[in-house]
């Protein structure tokens, strides 16, 4: 494999990681602040993608589609928080898992009811449709560069939000001591709704951005959800920094595993079966990574005590 191709594959891995970060950020934020494990996060991702596809079909504008995705996912998040989620904060994880599993069923079949069983159409805007040439001669899709840019911007924005703003202070205080900030006069239930809607909006944004280059269909959220869980568990649940590092690790492992493992096994066995064995191991690679991390650091790379 040429160095140039390897660099391009590393770039692909980073890009996949950034995509996962968009999804994982909301999930880890919600867990960090409210201690809630939300399986329905993938459904909010799907809501974002469907809202974007419907808006793009009606208006033809990709920017409007992104805005619609943000609004729809945030609204869905807020509604779910007000009706269901807030009853779960003081429950054990088991109830949270079950209730949000139930929400997945409702969201998925509800979406299918409204939009039908066929995948929807959503494409990248014409201005970003082609590749651009990077220094060194790598041709890289412009839209994927946009995703990397957006992901980094979101990461930076979240760091600033948490470390520099009043809301961020409340969020950090809420993570540290829930009763105390309530006693200090912060409207905790409003804060929770806000954080949940913010997490949902991030998922919706991810869904819309990714929906333009993937299939917009019912059930699209669950595979990504599982990957996002792997990410936040590796990084340490509740840690934005952990989610970022974990996302890049998972992105790189998955992409480079798929590329390099078949070549690695070709050193030992003949080409065709090496590809099959390599592909099989690659499909398990991120779970092996996750198990490995947890065995040595039971609370993830950047996690505190649970």
């Amino acid at each position: 494999m040429s160095t140039l191709l390897l660099i391009e594959q590393v770039l692909n891995g980073l890009q996949f990681g950034v995509m996962l970060f968009l999804m994982a950020a909301g999930l880890t934020l919600i867990f960090g602040v409210m201690g809630l494990i939300n399986l329905a996060h993938g459904s909010l991702y799907m809501v974002g993608a469907f809202a974007a596809a419907a808006t793009a079909a009606a208006t033809g504008s990709f920017v409007l589609a992104l805005v619609a995705a943000l609004i729809a996912a945030a609204a869905a998040g807020a509604i779910v928080e007000l009706t269901v989620i807030r009853r779960l904060y003081d429950r054990d994880h088991l109830d949270q898992v079950l209730a949000t599993f139930a929400l997945i069923l409702v969201f998925s079949e509800g979406t299918r009811w409204i939009f039908g069983s066929f995948p929807l159409y959503l494409d990248v805007p014409a201005a970003l449709a082609g590749p651009v040439t990077l220094p060194g001669g790598i041709e890289y899709p412009a839209y994927r560069l946009l995703i990397i840019g957006m992901g980094l911007a979101v990461a930076a924005g979240l760091f600033l939000l948490i470390s520099r703003t009043r809301i961020g202070i409340q969020i950090r205080a809420g993570e540290a001591d829930r009763e105390m900030i309530g006693a200090l006069g912060v409207d905790i239930s409003k804060l929770y709704t806000l954080v949940f809607a913010l997490g949902a909006a991030l998922a919706g944004l991810a869904g819309a951005l990714v929906g333009a280059i993937q299939s917009v269909q019912v059930g699209m959220g669950e595979p990504v959800l599982i990957l996002a869980f792997v990410v936040i568990v590796i990084g340490g649940i509740g840690s934005i920094k952990g989610a970022f590092v974990g996302a890049l690790l998972v992105g790189l492992t998955d992409t480079l595993g798929g590329v390099l493992l078949p070549e690695f096994f070709a050193l030992f066995t003949e080409a065709s079966s090496a590809k099959l064995i390599g592909a099989s191991v690659a499909s398990m690679a991120i779970y092996i990574l996750m198990a490995g991390v947890l065995i040595f650091k039971p609370t993830g790379l950047f996690g505190g005590q649970t």
Binding site: I226, F229, S283
Partner: peptide
């Protein structure tokens, strides 16, 4: 070795590992 959410997730990961293994094991 883990507890709480980490335990939920690591058991999920082992399940997924076996799932992908079963799919690709000819």
């Amino acid at each position: 070795r883990t507890t709480g959410v980490y335990f939920i997730m690591i058991t999920l990961a082992f399940g997924q590992m076996l799932y992908y293994f079963a799919i690709s094991w000819p």
